[in-house]
Every structure is written in structure tokens, then in C-alpha cells.
Design a protein around this nucleic acid. Structure first.
Lengths: 344, 344
DNA sequence: TTGAAAGCGATACCAG
DNA sequence: CTGGTATCGCTTTCAA
């Protein structure tokens, strides 16, 4: 066999399995068998070595698109990303889920379909022929979108968020639970006239609305005399908080649910600067149990959110992929529990 | 040649362009022409309509893998994600970059190659045959990894992080700038014995090390009598901060750089609980200019980090993709500027 | 204006 | 044990 010793800028084109075959002096089929460790066929050890060596020498890397085209399916799990950045809570959850899925031999891919929603987004995703799609509710994937994805071969379509979508499995993250927990806590602390901070940032509405709804529903359901809920828009910015604080006394509120701990911090600071005593004048409760809440004075009461383990959800996704026949299920995956500290 | 009678049991198969062609009563070529608006060929209006209708009726979505296989190239930009979640600063930067790239008609994909680093990671990425790769430094892509990617057809390989990698373009985010800015600020405020908080969380070392190095270098370079730097490990957790605060007086420090605003908040709280006056006894400066710093009392001095516009970087990536010949360039993309508030 | 056919890269069946 | 070859879905000449 003639070895060409030159280390020159190698063939400028990308090496294919045919190149490996040529260099190893075998057929493309044999290359495929060797590199995939196909157990149905036994290849002699010397041949294996020659193939591996040739592959290494050429820097051969298989072509995923060609492979999955031939195979007729892929193991790609598509997770469309929304433009609004998720907090540490969801980041951790997503990381865990990703890790667990890759342990199950799925290729997890986040695809930024910026600007597209609904059916358009679904079509863009479908072009990649993923075996499963985990779509955040923010993508507004409708029933039609689900159909598009399924027709394109997706075995499992999950939505993550507060709403169900017809035809898709749902990992229901019902923000109303958060509002409910906050409401019950404030009511049990004797508060009746309750404010509900609503972030003015546009993307957050999808999350804040259910929380406020849950708060309102729980307050109404308590049937307590004089109990009421007042929505208070607030931008994540000091001036906005100061303006709200300036008219705080006139609102006559004795408790407030602040959407999350960051908005709670913002509000609490402004109220304190205004001379309003917390929790005496107004009780404050946040959400998400961020580290910063424990560092505030008074320490911030909060709603701790429990998300399920990524392992379990990965197994669920895997189950649906392997047996796509079943009816779409909805899984309640968000637990909420009030944590009492000093601000309420 | 014997035609095998076509297999009817093809219940819910994914529609292909052939199916569209059959339904529309035209050839696959015509379908391709119509759906891609190929300008080189003119198709009659009635035919166009029939094709579009058939495509819609079948829910046809083109197969990206087949397309790019045939085309011999794709417009996929791969951004491997690291497991450590990025803060709001980088999230925004990434979102902007993604958006800008998709405006340039690239398909941005984040791929979680969890657990893989260096050449192994590069091979996994190369299987997708991306036209460009933007790899965070955390992936430890070495020069060999860069070679693997280029051989697989990647026209542009960029690293994002504190280090350069041979053969790749670099978006240098030199954390030393942050430490330098902090050092100069503290020194100018008359502080000499300076502490440097080093997060104990493993993933953060890659970011904290350069910051501390920059701090140390700037303090040394100032040649001031008695100026010194002491590294202080701290976990992102109250107990750790309390322990550090308990021995604070014995350390004899009059200034401290706290890695970022969150650690600064953690430390400041613990110091205040210990009765240490800020900034009188010890000046504190954080980094990243998070909202929370402005809400603390005293207001937290910080280092504001400037990241370049996503638009400009997207254009840069595009330029390199179109003209891959040039020498790899390093772009310093991180600006740091101390912001004086009340804690220093 | 439309159709037939080659071929992108990898794999799996069937011969040899 | 190894080599030809058909095939996946799509684009793109080249002919008709």
C-alpha cells in the first residue's frame, strides 16, 4: 500500500465514507459496518484497524443529515427557545431535562425561531424532522401547529406552560398555583386588601396573568368580608417603583403579592424609602425563593416553586416517543408553597 | 424490470414532494420550482396554484436534511450551550446575536453537548455540518477541535471567552478588564488591602479567575506601598458568607471586589450583620451592574460591562462565512467601567 | 413549460 | 467476510 507522506493542506473537500473506503482499500459498506460496530456482520480485525486508521487520518466525521435521511428518522428533540430569558429556576430545570434526555441518547437542540409563532413556527421546526418537540407556551403553538408537527413525523409534541393545546401532551405549569399560595398566606396573616403587582414588561404577561388570576380566585373563594384584589402595574425600574410607593397610602392596601422576588425587592425598597413599615403597614410576599430574598431586611416571604425532576420528564418523553398512540396527557408539574419569613 | 405492486399499508406517512407532485398532477421538479420560487424557470399560473394547493392540503413541509444534503451546504450556525447558566447580561447578548443572525438568514441552533469537551465535542458538532460555530470557552475546544470543525466544512469558527484558540476567530471577553476597573476604583478611593471574592461554585472559575488576575495585576502595577490582594473563597450561600464575615476584622481588609453584584449582596449583608460599616470600614464593589445593586443600602458600586451589539457581530460572522480565507482575528468585545455609588 | 434522471452521503439488503 | 446496489427527499441540469 502506498502511503503518501505529505502533510500538505489535505483535500480541501470534506471527507466522506467513500474517501475512507478508498484509503482503507475496502468498500463503503465495510466502512459503515466497522464505524457503526454493526453486530450482524463480522469484520476481520485487520480490516477494522485499517478502516479506523483511515478514518482518523482523514478526520472523517459522519454526516448527520445523510444518516437520518437514510434512516428515515432522527433522535432529535427540539426545544424552541423563547426570546424572553428564563430565570434561574427554569434554567436549572431545562438543563436537567436536557441532560436526562441526552442520557437517553437523544440529541437535544434549541432552535431560535425568532419572530415566528403558531403554524409558521411549527413549519420551521418541522423542517428539521425532530422526533419530539418541547415547545414553551410562548410560541403560541396552536392545534394546527401541533398537527403540522405530527404530520412531519414528530412522535411526541409537548407544550410547557400554563395552557393546554389540543393534540399535544402538556407539562402544565399552572401559575395560578403560585397566586393561590400567596393569597392563602396573606389571608391567613390577616390581610384583606391585597395588591397584585403586574410587571409591565411585555413578555412577562404570559407568566404574570395566571399568577394574578390564581390570587384573585383564591381571595374570592375565601368569602371573607372586605377582601379584595387590586392590580398594580410596575416596571422593573426604580422610578416606576417610586411612583407607585408615593401613592401607596392612598391605596389602603395591607398586603401585596409582588409577582416574584425581584419585583418584591424593588417594591419593598421603594415602600421603605417612603416610610411604610413592612410587614406592619403592608405585608409583602414574592415568589420563586431566590437567594436575594433571604438577604433582604426584613427577610422576604416567598412562594417556593417546585419543578419536577428532569429525569422523570425525560422518561416520559421517551415513553411517548416509543408509543405515540396514546391520548395526549396533561401533567401538572408545578408545585407552589408559601414560605413565611419576616415580610408578611 | 418488475414493478413491485405498491404497498398500500402506508397509513400516515410523511408527505414528500413526490406526493405533492402526484396530487397536483405534475413532476417533482415542477413542485420544487414552484415552492422555491425559482426565478430561472417560469411556471404557468394555473400550475403554480395547483402545486400550492396540493402542498397545503397534504401539510407538506420540506425536509431540511435532504435539502442541505443536496445543496452541499447549510446555513446553520451552531452555538453549543454550556451547562452553567448565563446571567441576564449574556442572555441578552446571545438573544441579540441570535436575532441578528436570523435576520441574515442563518438558522441558529443551540446544541447541548453535555459532558463532551474538546475534540469529542467538536466531532459531535461537526456531524451537523454547521457553516459556522460560536463556541463558548467552557467547551474547551482546542486547536484540534477547531481543525475537526473546519475539515467538516465549517467556514467560520469563533470562540467566545477569555482565551484565544489557535485557528479560530475570537470574540475575546477578557474578564481581566473587570478586575482592573475594580482595582483602579478601589485604589482611587484610598483602599490598599484589598480582598477578592472567589466563588466556590465550580463552573464559575472560568469567569472568576480572569477577574481576580486583572485585579491583582492592576494593584501590582500601581506600585503603591502596602497595597495587596487577598483571595477569599465564598460559596453562594448564607452560611459561607457568615463564616467569612465572622473572621473579617482579623483579615484587616479595607476594600473588597466581590466577583459580581450577587456575591456582593451576599457579602455585604453578612458584613452588615457583623457590624462592619460599609464603606467606612470596608469598601465593596461588585460587577455586572444588576438592578439589585441600586436597591441595596448603601447603594452598591459596581463594574458595568459593555458587550458589543449583536448586529455587528452577526455581520462579522457573515463576513467570515463568505470569505473564510483570512487569518483568524481576535476582537476585544468586553468593555468594563467602574460605577461609583455608595458602597465604596 | 414540463419531465426524466443524476446525485448529495450513509446504510442495509442480497450476492458472491 | 466483503462488495455491489437501491434507497432516503430534494435540487438541478439537460431534453423534450
Amino acid at each position: 500500500m502506498v502511503q503518501i507522506p505529505n502533510q500538505q493542506p489535505a483535500p480541501r473537500s470534506v471527507p466522506t465514507s467513500a474517501d475512507v473506503a478508498r484509503l482503507a482499500g475496502v468498500s463503503r459498506a465495510t466502512v459503515s459496518y466497522v464505524l457503526n460496530n454493526t453486530s450482524a456482520v463480522r469484520i476481520s480485525e485487520p480490516t477494522r484497524r485499517r478502516v479506523h486508521e483511515a478514518a482518523r487520518e482523514l478526520g472523517y466525521v459522519p454526516h448527520a443529515a445523510a444518516r437520518s435521511l437514510r434512516a428515515g428518522h432522527s433522535r432529535m428533540v427540539l426545544m424552541p427557545t423563547s426570546e424572553i430569558p428564563m430565570g434561574p429556576l427554569f434554567s436549572r430545570f431545562f438543563n436537567e431535562l436536557q441532560w436526562a434526555l441526552s442520557r437517553l441518547d437523544y440529541t437535544v437542540v434549541q432552535y431560535a425561531s425568532l419572530g415566528l409563532t403558531g403554524e409558521d413556527a411549527a413549519r420551521a421546526w418541522a423542517e428539521l424532522r425532530p422526533v419530539a418537540v418541547l415547545a414553551p407556551d410562548t410560541s403560541a403553538l396552536g392545534p394546527r401547529g401541533v398537527t403540522v408537527l405530527k404530520r412531519s413525523g414528530a412522535k411526541a409534541v409537548f407544550t410547557l406552560g400554563p395552557h393546554r393545546v389540543e393534540g399535544a401532551h402538556a407539562l402544565l405549569m399552572d401559575g395560578r398555583r403560585v397566586g393561590e399560595a400567596a393569597a392563602l398566606h396573606l389571608l391567613s396573616r390577616g390581610r384583606r386588601r391585597i395588591g397584585a403587582i403586574v410587571p409591565e414588561e411585555p413578555g412577562l404577561e404570559l407568566f404574570s396573568r395566571p399568577r394574578v388570576e390564581g390570587l384573585r380566585a383564591a381571595v374570592d373563594a375565601a368569602h371573607l368580608a372586605g377582601a379584595s384584589v387590586m392590580e398594580l402595574p410596575l416596571a422593573h425600574e426604580e422610578g416606576s417603583a417610586a411612583r407607585l410607593a408615593a401613592r401607596w397610602r392612598s391605596l389602603g392596601l395591607d398586603g401585596v403579592f409582588a409577582y416574584n422576588d425581584e419585583y418584591a425587592m424593588l417594591l419593598m425598597r421603594a415602600l421603605q424609602d417612603e416610610g411604610i413599615a413592612i410587614p406592619e403597614d403592608t405585608a409583602v410576599i414574592g415568589s420563586d425563593d431566590l437567594m436575594l430574598g433571604r438577604l433582604l431586611r426584613p427577610r422576604l416571604s416567598t412562594v417556593r416553586i417546585e419543578l419536577p425532576s428532569g429525569r422523570g420528564l425525560a422518561a416520559l418523553v421517551d415513553r411517548v416517543v416509543r408509543d405515540p398512540g396514546g391520548e395526549p396527557e396533561a401533567h401538572d408539574v408545578l408545585g407552589a408553597e408559601a414560605v413565611h419569613r419576616e415580610s408578611s
